[in-house]
């Protein structure tokens, strides 16, 4: 008994990619990525709980290329998700909802993400 006259939304690939839509889906993607990245936090805490030997193994993992790539991904994801999250909180408060502000805050989020990720990575690389 489906209603044939129902309006149907076009698929995602029909739309031209825009800054707004790209940042929106990136927020979701970074959220999902960070959920995976939280395993690193759990692993770190459990390794400390299990004693010096397991901590050394964790340290070895986090200093390997896979470990460093995972941590870099977390730095990138957290930087974006926190900045774009603040952007969302401003919207929730009813601020910055006009098109010009939305694009301006979008670019601030992108530049801020690159700067924050660069800063965190720089601090880590300098102390390796």
């Amino acid at each position: 008994m489906s209603n044939r006259n129902r309006p149907i939304s076009p698929h995602l690939q029909i739309y031209k990619p825009q800054l707004t839509s790209i940042l929106s889906i990136t927020h979701r993607l970074t959220g999902m990525g960070l959920a995976f990245g939280s395993l690193a936090l759990v692993y770190f805490l459990v390794s400390l709980m299990n004693g010096p030997e397991s901590y050394e193994a964790a340290k070895h993992f986090f200093r390997s290329w896979i470990g460093l790539a995972l941590l870099f991904g977390c730095a990138l994801g957290v930087s974006f998700h926190i900045l774009n999250g603040i952007r969302h909180l401003f919207w929730d408060a009813g601020r910055g909802l006009d098109l010009k502000s939305v694009y301006a805050s979008g670019w601030i989020t992108i530049i801020g993400t690159l700067l924050l990720t660069g800063l965190i990575s720089g601090i880590v690389v300098c102390q390796l």
């Binding site: 008994m1 489906s2 209603n3 006259n5 129902r6 309006p7």
Partner: peptide, 8 residues
């Protein structure tokens, strides 16, 4: 004839 958003 109208566009109805809800299923019957």
């Amino acid at each position: 004839k109208k566009m109805i958003l809800k299923e019957p």
